[in-house]
Amino acid sequence: MKIAIMGAGAIAYASAALLIQNGHDAILWSPSGRRSEALARGEPLRSEGVVAGEFKPAVAEDCAAALAGADAILIALPANGHKTVMDAMAPHLVSGQSVVISSHASLGAIYLARLIADRGLDVPVVALSTTVLRARQTSDTSVKIATLRGKVDMSTLPTAAAERGLSLCKALFGDRFRPISNVLAVALSNVNPQSHMALALCNFTRMEKAEAWGQSEHMTMAVGRLLEAIDAERLAIAAAFGVEVRTMREHYSLTYGLPDAALGETAKRLAASQEPTLGPATIDTRYTLEDVPFGLSPLVTLGQLCGVATPLHEAGLQIFSALYGRDLAAENDILPALMARQLTREALVAMTR
């Protein structure tokens, strides 16, 4: 299949390498085009780690060229760019294509599905709870892939296209997907914002001073307790909406093949058994600048819609905004667009069918 990949960062590059290794054709496009200039000139994409080798993805000049003839589109860039890319894609999508969001953030699948419905197209939107791969971009032409996840939750809009969405994901990335009830459940299954909030908040000066610090090593017992307390709010929202999601402890257990245990204990095991995964060495990081506005803020909104208090999520919004000296919640451009459609609890549930 021909897969158009929206993005030119770590997950876009890693996905291109994996898709090409799996026998597909990949074409990259990002709004700025700066990172992919060398690839566009013909330099190979070099990947190391769980996917190793040199690969030659194509690079599109614009969004229309990327989508032309594509069987599926993979959105693989930070959530800060999701709305911009979705707005660029919407006029060029055609019935028969499918869109996969890796990973789903801030109810973006619902926003995109509304754009598609406005055009009357048959284009399912698949939302992944997290990325299939964990990767770090090491240069404009190279990527290091640390993990190929064993299980990823996914859901499809509309739900009538669930089998089509699951078959596509398996064909692209292998049999590693767990279909769950609806896109709202996927939105509430993304645990990165909670995990990153605890790690970034408790290690903020290490980030600001550009220190090299291992994430597992610095998820101490106290940080683990904070993370589980933040996670309890996410679980309460899911229960109020009547959807089932994994706990953070279950997520770590399934991702790393470890026993279900307190997160501090799990982190200690990982630190002792794996090569360190370094945390951000800058405060200009997706752990905060993406996951606060597009991860914590939507959970606060969902809590308000279903009547669940989220004091730790709200505190995260306020504390990180104070640390950066700017209103991070205001940087979310997807929620206002959805709220303009008179978003209520009942309307939101209806949009996920």
Rank of each mutant, 00 (worst) to 15 (best):
L18A: 14
A52N: 08
A17Y: 03
A261C: 10
A222L: 09
Q21P: 02
G242A: 07
G214I: 02
A262H: 13
A222C: 02
V51S: 11
E208A: 15
R41H: 15
F320A: 14
F241G: 10
A238E: 02
V50G: 06
H92I: 10
S95L: 08
V123I: 04
E250Y: 02
A315V: 00
Y287I: 07
F177M: 09
Q304V: 07
P311L: 04
L335G: 10
E61P: 06
P293I: 07
S36C: 11
F173Y: 15
F294W: 11
G150L: 01
D87V: 03
Q215V: 14
N192F: 05
A337R: 05
A79Q: 10
A198H: 08
Y287A: 08
K151R: 09
G49K: 05
L39T: 14
V300T: 14
V50S: 05
A52S: 14
Y13Q: 13
T131E: 04
E331S: 15
A350N: 03
N182P: 11
H92M: 07
A161C: 07
K144G: 07
R269K: 11
S103K: 00
L305A: 06
D87G: 06
S216K: 03
I230M: 15
T344P: 02
F173L: 09
I237P: 04
I334V: 14
Y252E: 13
S129W: 00
D122T: 13
R149Y: 07
S155N: 04
E290V: 13
D333Y: 04
A261Q: 15
A160H: 02
I230K: 09
L39N: 13
C169K: 10
I5V: 12
P179T: 12
A330I: 04
N22T: 12
V99E: 06
L112D: 08
Y287Q: 09
M351Q: 13
Q274R: 15
W213D: 12
L201M: 14
P57Q: 07
P280K: 08
R353C: 06
G316T: 08
V125W: 00
G214Y: 00
E163F: 00
A135V: 04
C306M: 03
A185P: 09
G69T: 03
A65P: 01
T277K: 04
L296I: 15
N190Q: 12
S30W: 01
A12H: 08
A16M: 04
L121C: 08
A315E: 04
H251E: 15
T156D: 01
G264P: 03
I230P: 10
E331C: 11
Y287S: 09
D153E: 14
T288H: 04
R345H: 02
A135W: 01
W213P: 12
S167F: 00
P298W: 05
A88T: 05
R286N: 11
R234E: 10
A337H: 03
R246C: 10
